[in-house]
Design a protein around this nucleic acid. Structure first.
Lengths: 106, 106
DNA sequence: CACTTACGTAAGTGTCAACTAAAATATTAA
DNA sequence: TTAATATTTTAGTTGACACTTACGTAAGTG
C-alpha cells in the first residue's frame, strides 16, 4: 500500500504517469521527453511503477508499451477517502456491501 | 502537491497519521507509542506533516496537540480523481483488443 | 526566582534510492 | 547467422533524508 504511494511520490515517476495519462507510450518515447534523465533511469522508474501496480506493460515488437492502471489509483483513492472522513467511509462500505447483496443499483 | 504525497509516503509518518485518525494527540503521546524512534525524530516528522498540510498544531499548556487536517487529504484525492478518468476505461479496452491479435511467443 | 515538563531545533551520521555508464537481453529483419 | 533496434539489468557513485545526541525555548509549579 505504502509502496504505491511511494511510487507516486517521486517527481520523475509522477511526470511519467502524466505522460501516459491518456494514451499508452513506449519506454523510448517516454524517455525521449526527458532532457536530463537517461533511458536506463526511466526504465527503472517504469519498473517501480509496474511493481506498485500503477502501470501495466505490453510488448510490441522490440518496444514495450506502458499504460496507466486505474485500479492502482483507485486503491489509494479508497485509502484517502478513509482518512478524509472515516465515519463516512465506513457507512459507505456497509452500503456497498448491502447493495451487492441485492444485486441492483440504488 | 507532491510535497503532500511525499509526506504521506513515509512509513513512520503514515503511522502517526493513523494514530491521530480519530482524535488529536500530543507530540509526547505520539512519540511514546513508538518503540524504536526517539522523540525528536517524531517531532521532525510532525513538522513535515504540518508543512504538507496534513495535520494542524495547537498549543495546550506545555503540550502541543496535533490533529488530522481533512483538506490536505482532499487535495490528493482530487488529484487522483483526475487520473482515474472514465475515458481511460475506453482506452484500456482498445489496448486489450489490440493485444489479443498478437498470439504466440518464444 | 529556580525547577520541571514538553516540546522544537541544530548538527552530525548512516542508509537508501535515484542516477549514470556499460553490459546483457529480446525481438525483428537481412 | 549477423546486425540493428529497443529496452532492461548490473555495478557503482552520490545526494537526500531519516535518525540520534545535544541544546534551546516556552509554559506551568513551588
Amino acid at each position: 500500500m505504502l509502496e504505491t504511494i511511494q511510487a507516486l511520490a517521486e517527481p520523475t515517476r509522477f511526470s511519467i504517469l502524466r505522460m501516459i495519462r491518456w494514451e499508452e507510450k513506449s519506454a523510448g518515447e517516454i524517455a525521449g521527453r526527458f532532457k536530463n534523465i537517461t533511458r536506463p533511469a526511466v526504465s527503472q522508474h517504469l519498473g517501480v511503477l509496474r511493481k506498485a501496480g500503477l502501470v501495466t506493460e505490453r510488448r510490441a515488437g522490440t518496444s514495450r508499451m506502458y499504460r496507466l492502471r486505474p485500479e492502482g489509483f483507485a486503491e489509494i483513492k479508497a485509502l484517502l477517502e478513509d482518512f478524509w472522513d472515516p465515519r463516512l467511509a465506513k457507512l459507505k462500505a456497509v452500503a456497498e456491501k448491502d447493495e451487492k447483496q441485492r444485486g441492483r443499483k440504488k
